[in-house]
């Protein structure tokens, strides 16, 4: 049995579901927002093992039969109306520790990815250390709440970008706002008010011929170059998708090896690496040198299939169908 944790409106997850069904694999899809109102957990611990089921109106998962779990993007528990704030906090905590705890306890399950390991892996400063140990090149980076340190760092490199350490999407003024990578200007550096408010993340600007998203699915790696078609997308391709073009490429073996080592150290099975393929610097160095920007354990991939034709869905389907080898 394969358990897919994904929200309802997720057509990337649909693709994997259809692939699994086509192969005849038993699969149940659950969004954790269904718990506790549309999803029932019935689990007993006896004789050293958890037995029981997860049940929806139309489907049932035998806990003992689960061999793979794909944690795509489940949304948070939706509790019954009428709870006080204290009751809701209590209920949410109990739901997480109960449902999450039972799932974590199941033996021999292939997690793609294990949520606790994925959560740990989102710490970018940790990623940089792991990537460097794995032989990948990481641009000089500053994390600080000191305006003085920002000035010092900016003066030490040819150019500097600012980008968030965590999610780049916030809700404010009744709308969503996205924070893309920003190429810092002299005017920005002249007014550093607000740096002290929290940690800020700056990195040396890496001139590039292209960006690359490399998606690791178990033993498979799919590498797609992303070519900017505008000034905006040259700094951050996500800021102007429509101008970008895509092509599947091969990366040097040492980069592939570095990514595999990175994944192994962090215990990840799936990861979407954002890399830069360097442009030549003034001294002639850096051309085609691949630099590590980040690895996203929940990174999107369908746009790479749509634009470059890489078979990530098939790879995920195969991986989940095989399950854990342990």
């Amino acid at each position: 049995m394969i358990l897919v944790l994904a929200q309802e409106s997720d057509r990337t997850a649909d693709g994997v579901m259809l692939g699994l069904v086509e192969r005849g694999e038993p699969v149940v899809r659950v969004d954790l927002s269904w718990f506790p109102q549309r999803l029932t957990l019935d689990a007993e611990f006896r004789d050293g093992a958890w037995r029981g089921c997860l049940r929806t109106e139309h489907h049932e998962v035998d806990l003992a039969a689960i061999r793979s779990v794909w944690v795509r993007s489940p949304t948070s528990f939706r509790l019954p109306e009428g709870l006080t704030a204290v009751e809701a906090d209590y209920s949410r905590r109990e739901a997480k520790l109960g449902l999450g705890g039972v799932l974590f306890a199941l033996p021999g399950v292939l997690w793609v990815n294990r949520p606790d390991l994925a959560a740990r892996a989102v710490y970018k400063p940790l990623q940089y250390s792991v990537a460097a140990r794995a032989g990948l090149t990481v641009p000089p980076t500053l994390v600080t709440n000191s305006a003085l340190a920002v000035g010092r760092f900016a003066a030490s490199v040819a150019g500097v970008v600012q980008k968030p350490l965590g999610t780049n999407l916030i809700f404010e003024d009744d709308q969503y706002k996205m924070g893309y990578t920003h190429l810092v200007t002299d005017a920005d550096l002249a007014d550093l008010r607000g740096v002290h408010t929290t940690a800020h993340h700056l990195q040396e600007w890496a001139p590039k011929v292209a960006e690359c998203r490399a998606v690791v699915v178990g033993d498979d790696i799919f590498c797609v170059a992303i070519h900017a078609g505008s000034e905006q997308s040259y700094v951050d391709y996500r800021s102007d998708f429509e101008s970008t073009t895509y092509e599947e490429i091969e990366l040097p073996e040492q980069v592939l090896k570095g990514m595999r080592t990175f994944m192994a150290e962090l215990g990840l099975i799936y990861g979407a690496f954002d890399l830069v393929i360097g442009a030549p610097r003034e001294d002639g160095s850096g051309e085609n040198h691949v630099m590590f920007l980040e690895c996203n354990p929940g990174g999107q991939y369908q746009f790479l299939e749509a634009t470059a034709g890489v078979g990530i869905t098939d790879s995920l389907v195969g991986l989940l169908a095989c399950g854990s080898s342990s």
């Binding site: 706002k177 920003h182 008010r193 607000g194």
Partner: peptide, 24 residues
């Protein structure tokens, strides 16, 4: 809940360059 941005000086420096995305 949706708040308005705080005043310059307290708002994190890294939130100066946001692009409005509207509502899905």
């Amino acid at each position: 809940r949706s708040d308005a941005a705080s005043a310059p000086g307290i708002r994190p420096w890294g939130l100066r360059w946001l692009t409005g995305m509207g509502m899905p």
